[in-house]
Computed example of a mutant assay.
Amino acid sequence: MLKNSYKMLFLSTLFLGTMISICSSSWFSVWMGLEINLLSFIPLTMKLNNLFSSEASLKYFLTQALASSVLLFSVILFSFFIEWKMMLNFNSKINMILASALMMKTGMAPFHFWFPIVMEGLNWINNIILMTWQKVAPIILLSFCLNNYFFYFAIMMSVIFGSFGGLNQTSLRKLMAFSSINHLGWMVAGILNNQNIWKVYFIFYCFLSISIIFLFNSLKIFNLNQIFSSFNFKFLMKTIIFIPLLSLGGLPPFLGFFPKWLIIDMLMSLNMFFLLIVMINFTLITLYFYLRISYSAFLLNHNEMNWNFTYYFNNKKKMIFSFLLFISIFGLLFINLFFIFI
């Protein structure tokens, strides 16, 4: 187990690697920043007394190393064709290879095979970093290598796999992983026209994901059975758990609907109706299994304990969770009032 000083060192290096990548003027510096980010995240995920975290760290390292190799290979090809003045014929193909490497780093479909497995082996705190901060640099870099037809394909694959993948999941970590894959499709859709929209979407996604995962981490919840089969969870506690989850799924009138509203409005202005219909229909499947879980949790309340765990809420945690729940429920109302008065 790492000491707090070492954790702070690796976290600062993680932040530094991302800043190097997004502020670089050359692709070689981008690759170097991504490698610094990777090598600082691996020690945070590894635990000597936990076989699952070590396995997840190894899988994450191998996948990211493969993506970095493809990224470096595409940069070398780019330099080679520029030197020989052959760029006109190969520009779109190299952009597609480069975008594929960056999509693999984020866990976007069809390069998502590693993401649920890695999340299943990590604790909730490391999952927060993997779902939020580790996506910042690759998504920003994706905006520099636009390839519309390939992006359309990746967006549709992400919303499809993210929706169907979470249908029969009982592990909350895998459920959040497939939800993240679905949200990645919406984020990349925001890059197609207006880069500010995906930033707004990403901020809302980070806020809702962090609020849900902090709650799961405080209650030590990893599986759905821990919610269904515990008499400790009364109606108020289940409300605190599932309303942010429904907000993350984009159910109106909760806060999570606002970024999806922006993406829908943007795609309609671009006349991308086929892509919009696919995204909405398959996101409804994601919302369906959130509603199914919530419906079952509110109705099933029996006194069989499959896990014996305890949790404690001090006044500070109660205030934090109350604030997060309030924002998740009434955030969309305040945003609309802000636009009305402004």
Rank of each mutant, 00 (worst) to 15 (best):
Y152C: 14
F204C: 10
W186Y: 03
Q226K: 13
V159T: 14
G166E: 04
K174I: 02
I212N: 01
K174S: 05
C145S: 13
Q195C: 01
K238S: 06
F204K: 00
M156L: 15
N232T: 06
M131V: 09
Y149Q: 15
K174P: 01
S230I: 02
N193V: 11
C145Q: 10
F216E: 03
F214R: 10
Y149M: 15
F150T: 13
F222Q: 14
W198Q: 10
S143E: 12
T239K: 15
N127G: 12
S211H: 02
N223Y: 11
A177E: 09
N193Q: 12
N182I: 05
S230D: 05
L215W: 02
N147L: 11
G162M: 06
L130G: 04
Y152I: 13
A189M: 09
I221T: 05
I197P: 10
W198H: 11
N194E: 07
I213H: 00
K135W: 06
S230Y: 01
Q169P: 09
K238E: 03
F204I: 11
K220H: 12
A137I: 07
K220L: 09
S230T: 00
A177M: 06
F153H: 01
F178K: 01
V136D: 06
M157Q: 12
T170F: 09
M237R: 05
H183M: 04
I227T: 01
G185N: 06
F207L: 04
M176C: 07
N147F: 10
F178Y: 10
N223Q: 14
G165Y: 04
M237S: 07
T132H: 08
H183V: 04
F222W: 15
N148A: 09
L208C: 03
Q134F: 07
A189Q: 01
L208V: 04
N196I: 12
L146D: 12
V188H: 08
N225P: 13
K174H: 01
K234V: 11
N148P: 12
F151S: 14
F228N: 10
F235C: 09
I191Q: 05
K234T: 06
K220G: 08
N126T: 01
S209C: 03
M187P: 12
Q195R: 02
K135D: 09
T239E: 14
C206L: 03
I240M: 13
G165K: 02
F222H: 15
A154Y: 07
L172R: 00
I125Y: 11
S171T: 03
I213N: 00
I129L: 11
K174Y: 02
N147K: 07
F202C: 07
F144S: 14
F231K: 12
P138Y: 04
I160N: 11
W124I: 13
L215Q: 04
Y205D: 02
W133P: 04
F231P: 15
N182W: 05
N193R: 08
T239Q: 15
I221A: 03
M157H: 10
N217V: 02
A137L: 09
V136A: 08
W133K: 10
I197N: 06
L184F: 02
M187A: 15
C206K: 00
